[in-house]
């Protein structure tokens, strides 16, 4: 699961300020995407069928998040910590290798 930012994401800590003195003077980098995940907004999740994938990376280019990354073997994968389930990847995939599946929570 811990893929897009590897160890950085695994080691990230959520920033919590307990008193006014702990706050920075300016609202910069309050939290970070390393610890603030937006994947739980998702209702439909993209599922990749590697047997149909031709490694064209059109999905990788179109993902607005971006939550799609390229694995070492050249196939693409989705980082579900960030994927909001918009379905753009499935729509753009020329070989229909990505299917949107309703997610049960």
């Amino acid at each position: 699961m811990n893929t897009l930012f590897r160890e950085k994401k695994a080691n990230a800590k959520k920033i919590m300020f307990k008193s006014i003195d702990e706050y920075p003077e300016v609202p910069i980098t309050l939290g970070t995407t390393l610890s603030n995940f937006t994947g739980d907004w998702r209702n439909f999740m993209p599922v990749v069928d590697e047997s149909k994938c031709i490694k064209c990376y059109i999905c990788w280019k179109f993902c607005p998040e971006p939550a799609i990354y390229i694995k070492e073997d050249g196939y693409i994968a989705v980082d579900y910590d960030y994927c909001k389930g918009c379905g753009v990847c499935a729509n753009e995939c020329p070989t229909k290798a990505i299917t949107m599946v309703r997610e049960e929570k």
Binding site: F17, Y23, V26, P27, I28, T29, L30, G31
Partner: peptide
Amino acid sequence: FSIGALGTPADYYEF
């Protein structure tokens, strides 16, 4: 760093 990020009700007030 980023500036102008989201400030939830937990932080906006302090800024």
